[in-house]
């Protein structure tokens, strides 16, 4: 190791073969040490992993679920606290919640592909959020987010799923190298969604926060080509689920009336989805108006504990029960 103001003592006169051997030895020891870091990081994933969806799939004790649930953050409260257990008890059907924050149809499709490689489900319930169909932020960009894979255990089936997904394929070398696991700053932190801590709160409406939230979810102008691309991806997801023998249900999750009024393209989106689904054996349940009050949300648009109870009674339990 030499600083910039130093000079090597002179040209290296040792035999080139000897130099090559030393460099190869340095590389070999480095690879062994990297392997040790990899094993240590993988072990930490298994020790502290909990909410990461890939981890949940790999560690799911049951090979079959009645409901496999996909979607973005509006579906995440299904996994908060004891909600999943309550829903399973009320519906009499098992549930695995594979929703991810900011996860559009492409991340959902990757999760479903991985899930179906080792599991089966009677129903695939996709929470349909229009914002995820209008921006790559919630699809390709989200798939490139290292946080998604920091606690994904090493699994040949996941590597294969990543390879099969053109949008997720760039992450395959990162996943196989384990870099994001080794470099995980939160390696010892509990693997829980930050929002779960707010699950029991009630939101006090703030127009500025609502507006910012909608601007964040719908960046840029609507683009018909983008919408068509993600509808195509939705078609692929539906086909994947149906070919595995699952019934597909698209569920529009509840949002407060105040918030829904701010959504920019909701009617056009509903029309586009209805038109796209014509002829496909897919059921759509619109429960977006089922829980209108602000007191049922812990922030501008996510259900709190009371909201989840209201949502369950308003139709979610029926969906999960296959009715």
């Amino acid at each position: 190791m030499i600083p910039a103001d130093s000079r090597p003592t002179g040209p290296d006169t040792r035999r080139p073969g000897g130099v090559l051997v030393r460099w190869m030895l340095f590389l070999a020891i480095g690879l062994v040490l990297y392997g040790a870091l990899y094993v240590w990081s993988e072990r930490l994933v298994h020790l502290h992993g909990q909410a990461n969806r890939f981890f949940q799939i790999a560690g799911a004790p049951a090979r079959h679920h009645h409901n496999g649930n996909l979607g973005a953050s509006h579906a995440m409260p299904l996994g908060y606290g004891d909600t999943r257990a309550l829903l399973e008890a009320e519906s009499g059907a098992s549930l695995i919640n594979l929703s991810v924050e900011g996860g559009g149809v492409l991340p959902a499709d990757l999760l479903l592909d991985y899930y179906l490689s080792g599991h089966t489900a009677d129903r695939v319930v996709l929470f349909l959020d229009s914002f995820t169909f209008y921006s790559d932020q919630w699809n390709e960009v989200r798939l490139a987010d290292p946080d998604l894979f920091r606690r994904a255990p090493l699994d040949q089936a996941l590597a294969a799923a990543l390879f099969r997904s053109p949008a997720a394929r760039p992450m395959l070398p990162w996943y196989l190298s384990g870099f994001h696991k080794i470099n995980n700053k939160k390696r010892y932190a509990p693997d829980v969604a930050e929002a779960e801590a707010r699950f029991d709160r009630a939101y006090r409406p703030n127009p500025q926060i609502d507006r910012r939230r909608v601007e964040y979810l719908y960046p840029g102008q609507p683009d018909a080509a983008v919408l068509a691309r993600y509808l195509d991806a939705l078609g692929g997801l539906i086909a994947r689920a149906q070919s595995a023998g699952a019934r597909v249900i698209l569920l529009k999750p509840p949002v407060p009336d105040r918030y829904r009024a701010l959504l920019p393209y909701e009617d056009a989106f509903d029309e586009a989805v209805a038109s796209f689904l014509a002829g496909r054996d897919v059921e759509v349940r619109d429960l977006s108006r089922a829980v209108p009050g602000d007191e049922f949300y812990y922030d501008s648009d996510h259900l709190n504990r009371a909201g989840m109870a209201a949502f369950a009674a308003a139709g979610l339990v029926a969906v999960l029960a296959g009715k």
Partner: peptide, 13 residues
């Protein structure tokens, strides 16, 4: 020159 290359790599590191 292995010495110079090694120097460069170490400085880069």
């Amino acid at each position: 020159d292995p010495a110079l290359v090694a120097f460069g790599l170490q400085l880069f590191l």
